[in-house]
Design a protein around this nucleic acid. Structure first.
Length: 936
RNA sequence: GCGGGUGUGGUGAAAUUGGUAGACACGCUGGAUUUAGGAUCCAGUGCCGCGAGGCGUGUGGGUUCGAGUCCCUCCACCCGCACCA
C-alpha cells in the first residue's frame, strides 16, 4: 500500500473539523499549558516557507504537551490593523477592512493545509470592533489611572483626587514629568512663579474644573501632552522610535523629521525599574533580555545644580554618572533647545547662538546623530554658570552632542574623563583640568575608573568607585545635588495620524478630552484615507453623521498605534467572546501566563516592552493575577532564501552564463527561482517572464546551458527567491513539510532554505507508513523490537523537552530504519511509534494509529513512557584508547567491575602490540564509557 | 565603540554532565534493476596515504589520563544598540 498523503491528510483534517478535535475549555481538574505564536500581520503576499517554522515548532510542542495530559491552549489570530492595508486603501480607495478580510482568508487557507492544532473558535483580530472595544477599554483604564511611586503600582485616578482633596500632593509621589506644572496651559492657577510643584489641598480646591482636569492630566498613565515626535510627511503620520531606521521610516524608507505635536502618551517610564527587575525571572535568551535592558537604559549617578551668573533665580540641573569628577568641570553644554539658552545668551553672542539653534532644528534626526561620524560643533552662549562647590565661573556652550531628550538636556563637561567632552575641548581650545593622578589627559582622554583623583579637594587620592558615593553624599550635604537614577526609556507616543487603527473613546469639550465609556466608538467611514487639507488625520474627514457616537465639540481624530492591540491579545484568547470584560478573571486565573511563546527575534523589543507594561498595569489594577505575560520564549531563526542571478552584458539584450560572466562587463540581476532548476535557467520561460526580456539572447556554456549564479539572502518578493509552502504541500504533503522544516536544523538558528533535502524526509514518512502497512496482529514481537522502540521513546521525549526538534526527526528516522531492518511486524508492539510521530506528522500518525487496529484518535493517547529494562543491555563495548587515541573495541559483560575491565583490556592481544617496549603508567576506566591506557 | 550570538565534511547538521568527532539526511561516486527516469535497492563517501599509519571541530596557547565541549589570546562573520552625559 502506497503512502497516499493527499487522501490521508484530507481524511484526517475533515475528521478533526467534524469532531472539533482542537477545541479546548477550562478544566480545573487538569493542569494547563499555554503555547502561543506571535500572531501575524496578514499581508497580501501570503505565507512563505519561513513563516510556518515557528508555527510548526509550537504546534509540535502543543501536541506533545497534550499527549502528556495537559490542557493545552494553542490559539491563533491576526494583528490586522496596520499600514499596508491603509496604503493599499489610499491607492485604490478600497476599504482596508476588505483587503484585510481577503488576506486573512488567504492566511487561513494556508495555515489550515498545514494541519495545525489551533482552537480556531478562539481566533482574534485586532481590527474587529468586538476586540478593539477592549483595547479602547484598557486605554480608558490607563487614562483613569496614575502611578504611585511609593507603592510602586498603578492606582485609580479617583484615589489621587481623594488625596489631593485631603492633603494636596503632600506625602504623595505620583509619577509625572519632573516639572509637571510647566506642562499646564497658561491660565489661572492659584500660585505664583516660584511654585515648586508642592501643590497644597487649598491650591487644588481653588482650581476650577478645567484647571483640575489639566493638573490630573499631568499624572494620568495615558495623558495628552505636546511632545517632539518622529513625523513622517510622506506617510502623514507619527512613527515610534523603533519604526525609524537611520532617519527613514522602516516601512517605505521615507524621510522622518522632528515635530512638536499634541499627542496621547503612555507613561511607561513609571514602570522602568520593574521592567528591568522582572527580567530575571523570565526564561528568555540573554540577547533579548539585554535588548530590553538597553532600551530601558538605566544609569546611576547624580543630579547636580549649577548656579547661573547674574541670574540667581535660575539653576542649571545636570545629570552625571561621574559626580566624583566634578572638580574637573571646565565648561558646560546645553542642548540647543534647552530653555535656559535664552537666559544665558549674552547680547554679543545672540546672533551666533540663534543661528546655531536654527541650524540644529533644520537638521533631521538622521543628520544630527550622523551615521557614525560624530563631528564636533557648538557655540558659546557668552553666559557663565557657577560651580556649586568652588563658585568658579564656568563658560556655558550649546552643542548638538547634548540631547534635549535625555537627562536634563544639559551636562557638566569634564574633558579629562569623557570622550565627547575631551573632543569638544580640543576642538574649541577649552582647558582640560588634569584630575587623575599620574595621567596626562592633555594627550588622551581617561575614561577608566582606576586612577586616583587629584586636584579634587575632599576626593583626592580616591578611585572612582570609592569617590562616587562620597561625592553624592557631599553634594547632598551642600544642598546642590542628590543621587539619581536615570532611564533612557521615554514615555511612548500613543497617537497615530492614520485611519486603520483603533479610534480613541474620546471626544473634546472646550479642548478638554472626555472619555466615552457607555458606548463603543467604532471607525467611521471616510471618503479618502489621507490627511485633510488642513493636515488633520483621516478621521477628521468623517462627517458628523458618519460617527456612530458623536459627542462634544469634536471627536478624537487620531487612532492608536499598532502595538495597542498586540499588547494584550494573549489575554483575549482566554476568553475571546466575552462582551462584559476583556477577559474574565477566572479565565485568566486558569490559563495564566504564556508557558511558551514562539516568534522571531526581529522587531520584538518594542512589542515585549509594551506588552509587559500593559500586563503589569492590568495586574496592578487587579484585572489579572500575574505581572509578566510570557514566562518562556523561543525565537526561531530566519529561513533564508536562495536567490538566483542572471548576468546581462552591459547595454545589450545579451545574457551570459555564470562561467563566462567575467569575460564581459555585466550587470547582475535577480531572476525568479521558479525559472531555474539546479541553477540552470529555462531560457524560454525567462523570455516569457517579463516583456523587457522577450528578445533576450543567451551566451551559453559548453554544455549548451545557461547557468545562473546564486546567493543566500533574506527571502523577499523583490529578490524573487520566495518559496511558498503551497507547492511543497501539494507535492509532498503537510506532514513532510512539517518534518522537513523541523529537520532543517536547530529552531533558533538562521538557515538557508534548500528543497533538495526534502526527499529524504518524505522517504522517511513513506518508510514509516510501510512499517505499519505491513504489520499484522499475529506477528511475533522480538526483544530487539522493544529495545529499538523504547530507545526511540526516550530519545524523542528528551529532545522534545529541550526543543531539539531537528533531532526528534533524526531519532524517529533511526527508529524506523532499525525496526524495518529488524522486521518488526507486530502491530501492537509498534503502535506507540504512532504517538511519537503524532506531534510532527499528525495526519500520518492518525492513519498509522488506525492501521494498527487501534480505536479512537491518536490525539487522545497518553505519551508513551520508556521502560528502563529495555534500555539496559547485558554487554558493553568499551573503546580502548592509548594516550587518548582509540585503538580497538572491547566487548565485555555489563556487570563487570572496573578492575576486571582494566585487566581484560591489558590482556587483549591488540593491547599487547601497543604496549610493546613501553610501560603502563596509568589506566583509566570510566564505567560504561571508555578505557584509556597511559603509556610512556 | 558597546552588548549578544555563531564558526565542525562538498551541503544542512549531530555529539544533552569533558569520554569512540561527523549520528541523521542531502549531494556525490560505483553497482543492481529498469524502455527511460528527477523511481527503487545495495555499497562507498572528513582529509592525506597503495598500505600501515598520520592529520583533523576558525587561530595560537593552557588545564586534563582524555577537550568540539573548560580557561586565556587573536581572527572572521551575523544580529541588536549606538553622541545616553
Amino acid at each position: 500500500m502506497e503512502y497516499d498523503f493527499r487522501a490521508i491528510e484530507q481524511r484526517w483534517q475533515t475528521r478533526w473539523n467534524e469532531t472539533e478535535a482542537y477545541k479546548v475549555t477550562e478544566d480545573p481538574s487538569r493542569e494547563k499549558f499555554y503555547v502561543l505564536d506571535m500572531f501575524p500581520y496578514p499581508s497580501g503576499a501570503g505565507l512563505h516557507v519561513g513563516h510556518p517554522l515557528g508555527y510548526i515548532a509550537s504546534d509540535v510542542f502543543a501536541r506533545y504537551k497534550r499527549h502528556q495530559g495537559y490542557n493545552v491552549l494553542h490559539p491563533m489570530g491576526y494583528d490586522s490593523f496596520g499600514l499596508p492595508a491603509e496604503q493599499y486603501a489610499i491607492q485604490t480607495g478600497q476599504h482596508p477592512a476588505i483587503t484585510t478580510e481577503a488576506n486573512v482568508a488567504r492566511y487561513r487557507e494556508q495555515l489550515d493545509q498545514l494541519g495545525f492544532c489551533y482552537d480556531w473558535s478562539r481566533e482574534v483580530r485586532t481590527s474587529d470592533p468586538k476586540y478593539y472595544r477592549w483595547t479602547q477599554w484598557i486605554f480608558a483604564e490607563l487614562f483613569e489611572s496614575w502611578y504611585d511611586v511609593d507603592a510602586d503600582r498603578a492606582r485609580p485616578i479617583s484615589e489621587l483626587t481623594d488625596a489631593l482633596n485631603a492633603n494636596g500632593l503632600t506625602g504623595v509621589h505620583a509619577a509625572s514629568d519632573g516639572l509637571w506644572w510647566k506642562g499646564l496651559p497658561d491660565g489661572a492657577y492659584p500660585w505664583g512663579s516660584d511654585f515648586d510643584g508642592q501643590l497644597t489641598a487649598e491650591q487644588w480646591m481653588q482650581c476650577d474644573a478645567a484647571a483640575q482636569s489639566h493638573i490630573l492630566m499631568q499624572f494620568r498613565l495615558a495623558y495628552l501632552a505636546d511632545s517632539e515626535v518622529n513625523w513622517c510627511p510622506a506617510l502623514g503620520t507619527v512613527l515610534a522610535n523603533d519604526e525609524v531606521k537611520d532617519g527613514l521610516s522602516e516601512r517605505g524608507g521615507h524621510p522622518v523629521v522632528r515635530k512638536r505635536m499634541r499627542q496621547w502618551i503612555m507613561r511607561i517610564s513609571a514602570f522602568s525599574q520593574r521592567l528591568i527587575d522582572d527580567l530575571d525571572g523570565l526564561d528568555w535568551t540573554d540577547s533579548i533580555k539585554e535588548a530590553q535592558r538597553n532600551w530601558i537604559g538605566r544609569s546611576e549617578g547624580a543630579s547636580v545644580h549649577f548656579g547661573v551668573e547674574g541670574h540667581s533665580d535660575h539653576t542649571i540641573e545636570v545629570f552625571t554618572t561621574r559626580p566624583d569628577t566634578i572638580y574637573g568641570v571646565s565648561f558646560m553644554v546645553l542642548a540647543p533647545e534647552h530653555e535656559l539658552v535664552e537666559v544665558l545668551t549674552s547680547a554679543d553672542h545672540r546672533e551666533a547662538v540663534t543661528e546655531y539653534q536654527q541650524a540644529a532644528a533644520m537638521k533631521s534626526e538622521r543628520e544630527r546623530q550622523g551615521a557614525g561620524d560624530h563631528e564636533v560643533s557648538g557655540c558659546f552662549t557668552g553666559g557663565y554658570a557657577l560651580h556649586p562647590l568652588t563658585g568658579e565661573k564656568i563658560p556655558v556652550w550649546i552643542a548638538d552632542y547634548v540631547l534635549a531628550g535625555y537627562g536634563t538636556g544639559a551636562i557638566m563637561a569634564v574633558p579629562a574623563g569623557d570622550e565627547r567632552d575631551w573632543k569638544f575641548a580640543k576642538a574649541y581650545d577649552l582647558p582640560i583640568p588634569g584630575i587623575f593622578d599620574g595621567i596626562d589627559t592633555d594627550q588622551a582622554v581617561y575614561t577608566e575608573k582606576n586612577a586616583a583623583l587629584r586636584h579634587s579637594c575632599e576626593f583626592d587620592g580616591l578611585d572612582s568607585q570609592t569617590a562616587i558615593p562620597k561625592a553624592i553624599a557631599y553634594l547632598e550635604s551642600k544642598g546642590v545635588g542628590r543621587g539619581q537614577i536615570n532611564y533612557r526609556l521615554r514615555d511612548a507616543v500613543f497617537s497615530r495620524q492614520r485611519y486603520w487603527g483603533e479610534p480613541f473613546p474620546i471626544c473634546y469639550v472646550d479642548d478638554l478630552p472626555q472619555l466615552i465609556r457607555d458606548e463603543q466608538v467604532t471607525l467611521p467611514p471616510v471618503d479618502a484615507y489621507l490627511p485633510t487639507e488642513d493636515g488633520d488625520p483621516p478621521l477628521a474627514r468623517a462627517q458628523q453623521g458618519d460617527w456612530n457616537v458623536n459627542r462634544g465639540d469634536r471627536m478624537e481624530y487620531n487612532t492608536m498605534p499598532g502595538w495597542a492591540g498586540s499588547s494584550w491579545y494573549f489575554l483575549r484568547y482566554m476568553d475571546p467572546h466575552n462582551d462584559q470584560a476583556f477577559c474574565a478573571r477566572d479565565k485568566s486565573d486558569y490559563w495564566g501566563q504564556v508557558d511558551l511563546y514562539v516568534g522571531g527575534a526581529e522587531h520584538t523589543t518594542g512589542h515585549l516592552l509594551y506588552s509587559r507594561f500593559w500586563t503589569k498595569f492590568l495586574h496592578d489594577r487587579g484585572w489579572i493575577g500575574f505581572h509578566e505575560p510570557f514566562k518562556r520564549m523561543v525565537n526561531q531563526g530566519m529561513i533564508l532564501g536562495r536567490s538566483n542571478f542572471v548576468y546581462r552584458v552591459q547595454g545589450t539584450d545579451q545574457f551570459v552564463t555564470f562561467e563566462k560572466r567575467k569575460e564581459y562587463t555585466t550587470q547582475r540581476l535577480h531572476v525568479d527561482i521558479n525559472l531555474v532548476q539546479s541553477d540552470k535557467l529555462d531560457v524560454e520561460a525567462f523570455r516569457a517572464w517579463r516583456p523587457e526580456y522577450a528578445h533576450a539572447e543567451f551566451i551559453l556554456n559548453e554544455d549548451g546551458e545557461y547557468l545562473c549564479g546564486h546567493e543566500v539572502e533574506k527571502m523577499s518578493k523583490s529578490k524573487f527567491n520566495v518559496q511558498t509552502p503551497d507547492d511543497l504541500v501539494e507535492h509532498y504533503g503537510a506532514d513532510t513539510l512539517r518534518c522537513y522544516e523541523m529537520f532543517l536544523g536547530p529552531l533558533t538558528q538562521h538557515k538557508p532554505w534548500d528543497t533538495q533535502g526534502i526527499s529524504g524526509v518524505h522517504n522517511f514518512l513513506r518508510k514509516l507508513h510501510r512499517l505499519f502497512a505491513q504489520a499484522g496482529g499475529d506477528a511475533h514481537a522480538k526483544d530487539e523490537h522493544h529495545r529499538i522502540l523504547h530507545k526511540t521513546i526516550k530519545k524523542v521525549s528528551d529532545d522534545l523537552d529541550r526543543h531539539a526538534f531537528n533531532t526528534v526527526i533524526s531519532a524517529l528516522m533511526i527508529g524506523v530504519n532499525e525496526l524495518l531492518d529488524a522486521q518488526a511486524q507486530n502491530a501492537a508492539a509498534i503502535r506507540p511509534l504512532a504517538v511519537l510521530a503524532s506531534p510532527v506528522a499528525p495526519h500520518l500518525a492518525e492513519e498509522l494509529w488506525s492501521l494498527s487496529g487501534a480505536n479512537g484518535s491518536v490525539l487522545d493517547q497518553p505519551w508513551p513512557a520508556h521502560e528502563e529494562k529495555w534500555l539496559v543491555s547485558d554487554e558493553i563495548t568499551y573503546p580502548v584508547s592509548f594516550n587518548g587515541k582509540v585503538r580497538f573495541q572491547l566487548p565485555v559483560a555489563a556487570d563487570l567491575d572496573a578492575k576486571a575491565v582494566e585487566s581484560l583490556a591489558l590482556q587483549h592481544e591488540k593491547a599487547q602490540q601497543h604496549l610493546e617496549g613501553k610501560t603502563v603508567r596509568k589506566v583509566i576506566v570510566v564505567p560504561g564509557r571508555i578505557v584509556n591506557i597511559v603509556v610512556g
